[in-house]
């Protein structure tokens, strides 16, 4: 079957690729573009390990066809840190041990970043429901929720 040509911006870089009609954005990121930071835990939208944003909106990249990305802006975990500094969420996840095996971490970080952009002062319940689409089997979520709330507080403090 003929390949489809797609032009996108990924983490600020104009990026073109060819894909099959059935390829998902996750397949393309991982297998075509070598951006393996987004993980596949289920391929069905149930675990959130593949979370990215498209035009600022949080999505499961396993549920979006690669061809649909044409003309859109994608952000992945690879774009979250600067060359010499981590995003405050990344730093806080490390300080508070909010990861154990780490396979869910890229997805949680993308989801949490997207939450804090919309709601800089979330309650615990808001954090828990926002992150309910991301599965973690290791941590019981306690340290993840705390990390997100502490980061939010620090970022609010920093913004004042």
């Amino acid at each position: 079957m003929a390949k489809i040509h797609v032009s996108t911006t990924i983490n600020g870089e104009p990026t073109e690729f060819l894909c099959d009609p059935a390829d998902t954005v996750l397949d393309t990121l991982r297998d075509t573009l070598g951006l393996t930071g987004s993980k596949e835990g289920c391929g069905s939208g149930d675990c959130g390990a593949c979370s990215i944003t498209i035009d600022g909106r949080l999505v499961c990249s396993c549920l979006v066809l690669a061809a649909e990305a044409d003309g859109h802006e994608i952000e992945t975990i690879e774009g979250m840190a600067g060359s010499d500094h981590l995003h405050p969420l990344q730093r806080k996840f490390l300080e508070t041990a909010a990861l154990q095996c780490g396979i869910c971490t890229p997805g949680f970080l993308m989801a949490a970043k997207s939450l804090l952009e919309k709601n800089p002062d979330p309650t615990e319940t808001e954090v828990r429901y926002w992150l309910a689409g991301n599965l973690c089997r290791c941590t019981g979520y306690d340290k993840i929720v705390r990390a997100v709330m502490e980061t939010a507080a620090e970022m609010r403090e920093g913004a004042r």
């Binding site: 951006l35 993980k39 975990i77 979250m80 990344q90 996840f93 990861l99 780490g102 971490t105």
Partner: peptide, 12 residues
């Protein structure tokens, strides 16, 4: 740092 930036290499 590898694990929060997506660098850590898992089997897949």
């Amino acid at each position: 740092a590898d694990k929060v930036t997506g660098r850590a290499a898992y089997a897949a």
